[in-house]
Design a protein around this nucleic acid. Structure first.
Lengths: 143, 143
DNA sequence: TTATAATCAGATTATTTTATCTGATTAAAT
DNA sequence: ATTTAATCAGATAAAATAATCTGATTATAA
């Protein structure tokens, strides 16, 4: 199976996009997120906990607690979430798995893949949560 | 961990590129491939066996046996190897893991990711083993 | 024809990733 | 104060992926 993001990262991105879409100051319980997005509750809970440590989301404990964004959606880029969960390894390791792949000692796909990868990186760096709010809202409606 | 190709697929691509680079009619034993590429012998052996079933490589049993390409390197595209090992799932499933992601019901990244993904697909479809021979030879020297 | 060197096939193990469970802690509301 | 509804923390289980082991089969070459 070929994969881009791990399940953990997919879920994390979905959950944070969800928080951004419903952004209005107050926190959202994990139950709602898990139900709406059909993600195992304990799993997405763990992911949001770790994103709390990364400073991307804020958590409020106790009754009527839940999660919210830790900062303005304009300041959260998709790459931040990916970096926090999966790391940025895919953006600087060899697509063919060759060791010591570099400009000096390139693999057969080094240049061509490098271009594609850098486009992907740029996209994830350009996109912030606020820019995706409308599209996320529409998607959430149709789940 | 974010991943593009599975380890199986990386190894498979490496091994087939190796066969193409050393192409001269006769078969190459798995031992040589595994040693040169630092891949566990039994593992790459299994992978090459499955690529034999897919019609991409040819295997010769018994003493002085080994593996070779099953057809001309001009006729083997990288996408064929990826399709045989990992499948083409990543090229038609949602990058964010949303269900029923489609043009009618797109995820927030549907268009932008679609473009990147389609570029990657085109690249893997354009590149054939013969085109990569020189670069592969150079890489193999420096392992 | 026998020894040898290779693939083949299937089972097993190890590791990583994904998912679940249990109980503790926290804080709001009654 | 007590109940309640939530996160938090750590252990455990399940599933998928990666790697290894064992022995059988095959075919070359002495």
């Amino acid at each position: 199976m070929t994969v881009i993001f791990s399940k953990k990262c997919e879920y994390g991105l979905q959950a944070v996009l969800y928080l951004a879409a419903k952004e209005n100051g107050d926190v959202i319980p994990v139950d709602e997120i898990a139900n709406k997005l059909s993600i195992p509750k304990e799993f997405v809970s763990k992911i949001l906990q770790s994103l709390t440590e990364s400073g991307i989301v804020y958590s409020k404990k106790g009754k009527s607690g839940g999660f919210a964004l830790a900062k303005a959606p304009q300041k959260i880029r998709l790459i931040d979430i990916v970096a926090a969960i999966d790391g940025l390894g895919m953006f600087n390791s060899c697509v063919l798995g060759f060791p010591k792949c570099s400009h000096e000692n390139p693999c057969p796909l080094h240049e061509k893949w490098g271009t594609l990868r850098s486009n992907a990186y740029d996209m994830l760096t350009d996109e912030t949560l606020d820019q995706l709010k409308a599209k996320t809202l529409r998607k959430i409606q149709n789940l």
